[in-house]
């Protein structure tokens, strides 16, 4: 069964999409089969992987109905030009979907259906990475319920901390409503512009406050990130040796997502010319 990981923070711009894309790419290069689900109507992640505006996915099918076979879910997933990366892309339609889900939720426990439908995919993928919209909605609830790990990127400020507190409320609501035991996996800091006083102080505070749930691997800001977000290429394709890429690799290792065999594959790629 695939492990489902969601990147969620109700604060926008903290690096959810960049993290989702980069971590997916690292795992895919190492040999794992990855499915990225883009639930952000802004479609950044989908467009990086080549999707145009007019895609025809019946989201209602995936979110509002309980499917019974793998094919009914698999048919909406597309292959990308990157090996081992498949994509369930977003669209502007996702905004409308929220209202549909709300309607159905009055009579059915519709927020549980995405989890059910993703489970039909079985072992087809090793990891399913969900890039969520910052806007808290039924889509986020569906993603939270479907996830094995919920990870929150935060910036060096209290805006993103506030987003985290709101996420805790959401998780608690869903646990109570459906008697689940959704857990928060951890948070990590992104867009670090150097070992500033504020960074060091916030890092220490997060460590004291959240203990094991604070992931002490921070992602340094580097120009390659902005540049790759401009050319719409995944980070390692653009510059596999940049500092942010190195930090993301360390993050993947820290989270225990990669075993030695797969790490060797990654090492080969990093050393090579491709």
């Amino acid at each position: 069964m695939a492990q489902v990981i969601s990147f969620i923070n109700e604060k926008g711009g903290v690096g959810k999409s960049t993290s989702a894309i980069t971590i997916s790419q690292i795992l895919a290069i190492s040999g794992y089969k990855i499915l990225i689900i883009d639930l952000d109507p802004q479609m950044n992640t989908s467009k990086v992987f080549g999707v145009q505006d007019d895609n025809l996915i019946d989201y209602e099918h995936l979110f509002c109905n309980k499917q019974t076979d793998k094919e009914s879910v698999q048919k909406y997933i597309m292959e990308t030009e990157h090996k081992n990366i498949s994509l369930l892309s977003a669209s502007r339609e996702l905004n409308q979907l929220i209202y549909k889900i709300y309607d159905i939720s009055k009579t059915e426990s519709v927020e549980l259906y995405l989890k059910h439908n993703l489970e039909l995919l079985g072992d087809t993928y090793d990891y399913i990475i969900i890039d969520n919209s910052p806007f808290k909605s039924y889509l986020t609830s569906c993603a939270i319920i479907a996830s094995d790990k919920i990870i929150t990127p935060v910036n060096v400020d209290n805006f993103s901390y506030d987003g985290l507190m709101s996420l805790f409320d959401t998780i608690e609501e869903l646990n109570t409503k459906y008697s689940l035991h959704i857990e928060f996996a951890g948070l990590f800091m992104t867009r670090i512009t150097g070992r500033t006083t504020i960074y060091k102080q916030m890092f220490e505070d997060y460590e004291n406050m959240f203990g094991d749930n604070f992931i002490p691997v921070s992602i340094r800001n580097c120009i390659a990130v902005s540049e790759s977000n401009t050319t719409f290429e995944p980070l390692l394709t653009y510059d596999k040796k940049c500092t942010a890429a190195q930090d993301y690799i360390e993050l993947v290792n820290y989270l225990g997502l990669m075993d030695n065999k797969h790490f060797r594959e990654l090492a080969k790629y990093l050393k090579g010319d491709n």
Binding site: N158, M165, I171
Partner: peptide
């Protein structure tokens, strides 16, 4: 002197007890 803290603002509008909040969440599960 620079003094920055998670959850602490000059106007105290945030819930600074993030750690306890997470513990509550864990207890629930």
């Amino acid at each position: 002197k620079k003094d920055f803290h998670v959850g602490r603002t000059t106007n105290a509008t945030l819930n600074a007890a993030g750690g306890q909040r997470l513990q509550q969440l864990k207890a629930q599960t």
